[in-house]
Write a protein that binds this DNA or RNA. Structure first.
Lengths: 192, 192
DNA sequence: CGAATATACGGAGCAGCGTTCCGCTTGGCA
DNA sequence: TGCCAAGCGGAACGCTGCTCCGTATATTCG
């Protein structure tokens, strides 16, 4: 069930186009957000409409492909933070910060994944698959250290954070999602 | 600066159509969400495209017109809750609950107002104008009673709540925004 | 009561979007 | 070199928001 490395080796031009598409999408997403017109991405990559749909049948497929390694990096940072931070709760703060920074810099990413959960099932799945276990681990550590007493599920927390970050994606001076999230995290523990 | 009761008295059919449009929009919003196609609303009301745009130049104008009284009701309930609840913090809980229930039942309302803050400036303004003072009052009372010690601004809290509610607009069993919001509110006080 | 006029109406039309489909091109292999 | 599956491009379709202007009508005035 491994994805695509052997089986029937893709043609060279197909591989080239896929790469071009990925690069183009990454660039366009930065300037125009993840809702950028398909034609725009195709044009940027110098390919036709058919090509983009053949490689990435769904917009979410493209988004996932573009951001997968960043999500991975975020997931992998979890254990490291847990080891280096002075307490599990501090690690939680740090890790959440990482996640929020990731979300906020991707225009409309979280919003898109929320507004169209059917279509963005893949993205949703990526987030959940990679991030949930990590958050679970950090949460368990914090709970073990007595820093968290409320029983909040990782899913609950991850979604809440995602929603808050999504709401703050537009740059609005005077509102800082991190403060809100800090409040939320504080709500998960009793003060020491 | 009063809006529209005298000046140059509108034509009878214009008034009728405006009412029809409002009713139609309310009905369509319930079934199809606030992003329902303009043509659909026009058809439901039995008017042409021109008419809908003449009465409500912007989609937000229509949305605001449809929900204004509900927002008003929510705002007016604030002082009443403050008077009847057993503590200011309890009133805060109740009032927030009211607000969330309002948001969650309007498919895509909060999301729409967030994804297009330019276009939905009117909606945003309505929320802020009517609701912020009320929340401010409740918050001040709670702070006066020593139930809230963190200095969180009404705007901060209102936005956070709106964002969380917006994220939960799709019915997703297993996730309850009210729990998240409860956590957030708890984060605003020291435990008694 | 009938004409004049501002007011309001309707819907064709335009531009931009996502998505599909199929005739043509090209890479890889014998 | 020649063949053919794999891949490509972009025209075309249906749906969207929004504008524009010829037509219809409510209101007013003689």
């Amino acid at each position: 069930m491994g994805a695509g490395e052997s089986a029937t080796a893709k043609r060279a031009d197909a591989r080239r186009n896929e790469k071009a598409l990925l690069d183009a999408a990454a660039a366009v997403f930065v300037t125009d957000g993840v809702d950028a017109p398909v034609r725009r991405i195709a044009a940027e990559a110098g390919v036709g409409m058919g090509t983009i749909y053949r490689h990435f049948p769904t917009r979410a497929d493209l988004v996932v492909a573009v951001y997968r390694h960043q999500v991975d990096a975020c997931a992998e940072a979890g254990p490291a933070l847990l080891a280096s931070a002075e307490s599990p709760f501090a690690a939680l703060r740090d890790w959440v910060d990482l996640f929020v920074n990731f979300l906020v810099t991707k225009h409309g990413l979280a919003a898109a994944s929320r507004n169209d959960p059917e279509g963005f099932g893949a993205l949703h799945g990526l987030f959940l698959d990679r991030l949930l276990p990590v958050l679970d681990e950090i949460l368990a550590a914090a709970r073990g250290a007595g820093e968290i007493t409320v029983d909040v599920t990782p899913l609950q927390l991850l979604r809440a954070i995602g929603d808050i970050a999504a709401g703050a994606e537009r740059t609005d001076p005077g509102y800082d999602p991190k403060i809100t999230i800090g409040l939320l995290l504080d709500g998960c523990r009793y003060p020491g």
